[in-house]
């Protein structure tokens, strides 16, 4: 890490701040050499540690890509080589031909994109209200939202399904939710339940809490309405939070598997994760094709993360979650 040219010195772990070093040093040349050596050792240790952690994190992804291009014979080997002996890129084509992935990818993208928009809109407005607007029920509502995060999805999937199934005036249902199939096998069931999440409200509330209330008060004195204060004054202050929530919302929509499987029957409404299950049969998994499909389905998320990683990490750090 090159810190020498920076206007403000940046400390790395193991470095000693200049003012602290002054108090303890015996003599200038010895102290200088010792500090340089310490700094070098710390950096080497840090780089080795980071490289090792990165390797651990990257290896499964590398293995996924390499498995995607292996031959069937190599897949059956007891100790296959890390790098494939022959690269079978046609596995990607075979994987794409095994199911209508263009439909599945389109649907997953629509779900992910719509969840980004709705989660940012509803999550930000609810988060702002809980953080900055004074009303008696705020702590109770916040506690209730936190409590809902502690209930696993599997425990509420059937009640959720029943809500979608008996939705009045949809899918042939009457006003009492009878007679038809409600939202089942429709875009409504795919989109509406994921429009906002308790976690996104919680995350954005944490960001809004850190913004200066004085700005809001000044805007009120200047005569701005509450929605304009939220949209034009305060929300622009929490861009890292918005990006974090957007990425998580897209990831949630893109990777959603069980809910779309349960509420759809038409192939035109199936999503990419359901499509990948084609390669896992009862007693036979086509690892080459499964990994090829998984590699392709992971690409959008990897690209988004690479572009927005700085904001994403900052988002978690600033919200106090990390």
């Amino acid at each position: 890490m090159a810190t020498d040219n920076l206007e403000f010195p940046v400390l790395v772990p193991g470095e000693v701040a200049a003012d602290t070093a002054h108090a303890a040093a015996p003599s200038a040349p010895v102290r200088g050499r010792s500090q340089k050596r310490q700094r070098l050792v710390s950096r080497v240790v840090l780089w080795i540690l980071l490289a090792a952690v990165s390797l651990v994190m990257v290896t499964p992804f590398a293995w996924m890509v390499f498995t995607a291009v292996r031959s069937p014979v190599e897949l059956a080997e007891v100790n296959p080589p890390f790098f494939p002996r022959t690269w079978h890129f046609e596995n990607f084509v075979r994987a794409l031909q095994a199911a209508p992935f263009h439909i599945y990818a389109r649907n997953s993208f629509i779900i992910g994109a719509s969840q980004v928009v709705t989660t940012m809109l509803f999550g930000a407005s609810a988060g702002y209200a809980l953080a900055k607007l004074r009303f008696r029920a705020a702590p109770w509502i916040f506690a209730w939202l936190l409590a809902t995060m502690m209930i696993p999805f599997y425990a509420i999937v059937i009640p959720d399904f029943l809500l979608a199934r008996f939705m009045p005036l949809f899918g042939g249902n009457d006003i009492f939710g009878q007679g038809g199939q409600g939202w089942i096998d429709s875009w409504w069931a795919l989109l509406v339940p994921g429009m906002v999440s308790a976690f996104s409200i919680f995350l954005l509330r944490q960001f809004y809490v850190t913004t200066p209330t004085e700005l809001i008060e000044a805007a009120r004195i200047d005569g701005l309405s509450e929605p304009r204060i939220w949209a034009q004054i305060i929300t622009p202050q929490i861009k890292p939070g918005l990006l974090t929530v957007a990425l998580l919302a897209f990831e949630g929509g893109w990777n959603n598997f069980l809910w779309p499987l349960l509420v759809t029957t038409s192939e035109n409404l199936r999503v990419i994760q359901v499509g990948l299950s084609v390669f896992r049969q009862e007693s036979n998994t086509q690892w080459d094709l499964l990994m090829a499909g998984t590699t392709l389905s992971a690409l959008p998320m990897i690209v988004l993360f690479v572009i927005f990683q700085r904001y994403f990490v900052n988002g978690f750090v600033n919200s106090g979650i990390k």
């Binding site: 999937v157 059937i158 399904f161 029943l162 199934r165 008996f166 199939q181 089942i184 069980l258 499987l261 349960l262 192939e267 299950s277 896992r280 049969q281 009862e282």
Partner: peptide
Amino acid sequence: YVPWDKLNEKLSTQIAGGT
């Protein structure tokens, strides 16, 4: 079309929903 490992979940929700 439902994968084997999620068939029970799918059938259970369908049946619970009366469909």
